[in-house]
Design a protein around this nucleic acid. Sequence first.
DNA 1: GAACCGATTTTGATTAATCAAAATTAAATC
DNA 2: GATTTAATTTTGATTAATCAAAATCGGTTC
Lengths: 223, 223
Amino acid sequence: MLPSSTVENYLKAIYVGETQLANGQKLVPMGQLASVLGIAPGTATTMVKALAESGLAVYEPYNGVRLTSAGEKLAARVLRRHRLMELFLVQVMGMRWDEVHDDAEQLEHVVSDRLVERIDEMLGHPEADPHGDPIPTAEGKLAERPLDTLLTCPLHTPVTVARVTDQDAAFLRFIESHHLKPGQTIEVEARDEVSDAVRLKGRDDARMTIGARAASKLLVKAS
Amino acid sequence: MLPSSTVENYLKAIYVGETQLANGQKLVPMGQLASVLGIAPGTATTMVKALAESGLAVYEPYNGVRLTSAGEKLAARVLRRHRLMELFLVQVMGMRWDEVHDDAEQLEHVVSDRLVERIDEMLGHPEADPHGDPIPTAEGKLAERPLDTLLTCPLHTPVTVARVTDQDAAFLRFIESHHLKPGQTIEVEARDEVSDAVRLKGRDDARMTIGARAASKLLVKAS
DNA sequence: GAACCGATTTTGATTAATCAAAATTAAATC
DNA sequence: GATTTAATTTTGATTAATCAAAATCGGTTC
């Protein structure tokens, strides 16, 4: 029984939700799930019970939900398709990185294994999509490495942008126009708790100040 | 209100069904519709009534159904996507012409206008897909020209294969291996009503005999 | 014209996915 | 410990799409 697009979306949301949990936590709460999927809370409860029934998730009433290994496998497949499609649309179809999310959101549910693997090959078995999000392997392994954000990385030290964790088109265009895309090198000059601001030194020593909320969406590694 | 994949499939089936009607006929019978869509006859009736309700089709009880101009517009859009995707999968993704149908069947419902038009451009605004089926324009115009089949074309006269009206993979592979793909030139040497056979002269004067049913699926034009 | 037959329509049910609103629970506050 | 609150679950309905099987229709056949 192959999963419907709806089920795939639930699995993906739980999978991604799990990776974002504070250390130690292991259950994604219903409220969060409902909100990222844009559905009523009661709907999430009903659906998650069905997922548990079919062995894809473990459901603890009032606590939340996590995936079984079967569920994780399926979720990784969907995420693999999504991220490969995003990269394909940018690299091969020449689309902008801020306009590929919605297409990938649809395509992830319908592309055949044959086509996905051909795309993977055409792209040279890439490890990350245009936003730096890691692409699960065909076997369902996801290499999530722990990264600093611009709120946690050391000051006055060159770092390389590795990942942008927001799909909003306007935000992505801002990132691009300020040379903050994955691969580019920057440095945090100062953080101010009170004003909630982070001051950066970018390419050509350009200075810019962004809010803490935005800074937390830029993941970096030492460079 | 954008149409569901199901509705798109009904529209496409009616649209294609209309073009295959004997001259003078204008209604697609429910039975045929149900059979090409692989659904129960009663389901077709119910759905077609709903299509009529929403102004996409005209339904005459016990006689059949045809599209309104609004329905035709939508159907042409779906067909355009399907055929452009087939050609894209062959030309750009390097897939074989006998393996692209199922992927295109899914993709036709989800690719965005932006992506479709980019593909159209990348392919140089093509007029036909790999099977020779004409691609409707973005405005919904379909250039269906009347063609002979190998059962109706003149004998002992060179003709060019223009279109293969069967998506069966085994059949397509047969066509390919015998050099009968669209664009290739052949000649009908003889037809025999009794044995139901058609004898052809192909590339390098190769002789072959095919059945009338197969011959009717090869559309040709004078060359 | 009566009887039959194949195609079509109706009927009654089912499944997946959803919502709004009422009921309940767990945890936090007093 | 009683009360309030926020999250969650339950309930009752709805919509889209489907089926099987019974009923009906339209057009031959006798």
